[in-house]
Amino acid sequence: MERVSSDQFVASGMLPERREDEGPFSWWNEMRPRFFKGFHRCLPALATAGNDLIVEHVIEYRTWREELSRLLTDFDVFLVGVHCDLAEIDRREHERGDRRAGEGRGHVEINGMHTFGPYDYEVNTTNGVSTTLVQSVVTAWRSRGARRALTTF
Rank of each mutant, 00 (worst) to 15 (best):
T73D: 15
S6R: 05
E67K: 09
W28C: 10
R99D: 06
F39W: 04
V58K: 07
R18V: 01
E95I: 03
P118I: 00
E109N: 03
D85T: 02
E103Y: 06
R147G: 10
A47I: 00
R41Q: 15
E95F: 11
L43Q: 04
S26G: 11
A49L: 14
S6K: 04
E109T: 03
L53T: 04
D90L: 06
D7T: 02
E93D: 07
G102C: 04
L86C: 09
E17C: 03
G145S: 06
G145N: 05
T73K: 15
E30M: 10
E122I: 00
R105A: 02
H94W: 09
P118L: 02
H114L: 07
R91V: 09
W27Y: 15
V55Y: 12
G145F: 12
Y119S: 01
G23F: 10
M113Q: 06
A11P: 00
L71C: 08
P44T: 00
S26R: 05
R147E: 14
W141V: 00
H107S: 10
S143K: 13
L79Q: 01
S5P: 00
E109R: 07
E66N: 12
E56C: 09
T152D: 14
M14L: 15
N51V: 06
Y119T: 00
R100V: 05
S12I: 01
T125K: 05
E88C: 05
H83M: 14
S12A: 15
A11K: 14
L46V: 01
C84K: 06
V58P: 06
A11Y: 08
R32E: 14
M113F: 04
E2W: 13
G104Q: 00
M14D: 03
F25D: 06
V4A: 07
R91D: 10
V80L: 10
N111I: 00
F78Q: 04
H114T: 00
Y119Q: 01
R144Y: 06
R70S: 15
Q8K: 08
T125L: 06
I59L: 09
A47Q: 02
